[in-house]
Design a protein around this nucleic acid. Sequence first.
DNA 1: TATTGTTATACTCTATAACTATA
DNA 2: TATAGTTATAGAGTATAACAATA
Lengths: 148, 148
Amino acid sequence: MVMSGDPAMNVPTGLSRWTGFLLARAHQRAHALFQDALAPLELTPKSFGALSVIKDRGPLSQAALGGTLRVDRTTIVAVVDELERAGYIERGHNPADRRVHSLGVTAAGSDALRVAERAAGASQDDLLAGLHPGEREQLQALLARITQ
Amino acid sequence: MVMSGDPAMNVPTGLSRWTGFLLARAHQRAHALFQDALAPLELTPKSFGALSVIKDRGPLSQAALGGTLRVDRTTIVAVVDELERAGYIERGHNPADRRVHSLGVTAAGSDALRVAERAAGASQDDLLAGLHPGEREQLQALLARITQ
DNA sequence: TATTGTTATACTCTATAACTATA
DNA sequence: TATAGTTATAGAGTATAACAATA
């Protein structure tokens, strides 16, 4: 009962059999939608992810944040700078180890995250507009299972 | 009967609800596997895609190739250079319009594509190792439907 | 005037190397 | 010695601008 084929010619016919190409296209679209949805909040998909992790797991170090997001610690610096400049997070001190920055969300960051999550949700609805609720869950579950 | 949740903690918990983040992770993994599989053949995921399109739709112009792959025509130049240098394609002439290059696959390119497709298939099996055949088809079909 | 292919250039993203301050 | 954060730098990847040839 599963339909294969090339429903909308979205991907060059011969390439449509490669999951990698479909993933590339789907990701490209998701990223663009996400980016547009978050832009008014001074957030990028990456900084939104960082803010979300800091809110969930904070206070945590920049190294821990980078490890969670799988981003190099040198790349994390700019992301944290950006979030701090926007007033969404603070670089606190860790009395137990004065090398580390203890990242925590501010009240403004918490508010921004709530708004951003609504915007992200709307962009996700846009991305998944063609799928029924059950199909969205299926896709979500299948993707989770091929993610290393 | 659909299972949601976070089967393997592959994505930071709070982020696992965002399809975009799962797509980013899945694409990142697929790209790495694809790249490794194709490297011995002097092919990248992008040049493999180009070779595949030229084989399927050739002879065609660089502009047409770029349009199909959604890659800027200035970016296509290097991809075509690379494939030509490897001896996989030829830049032919179009008598009807002397501006365009008529791209066609060589015999060596055809052979390389066959080998590359086997390698790509193996890397795809790797990517989808955790999914049953029916689930692979489901994922494929669902991805095709959110691809613009 | 518009289009094809090309080059030069710039911009984004990200990692490596090297530094400091701590441990 | 090793680690956290930082900076400078370099390498991909890709787009914009400008050009020659051709339509």
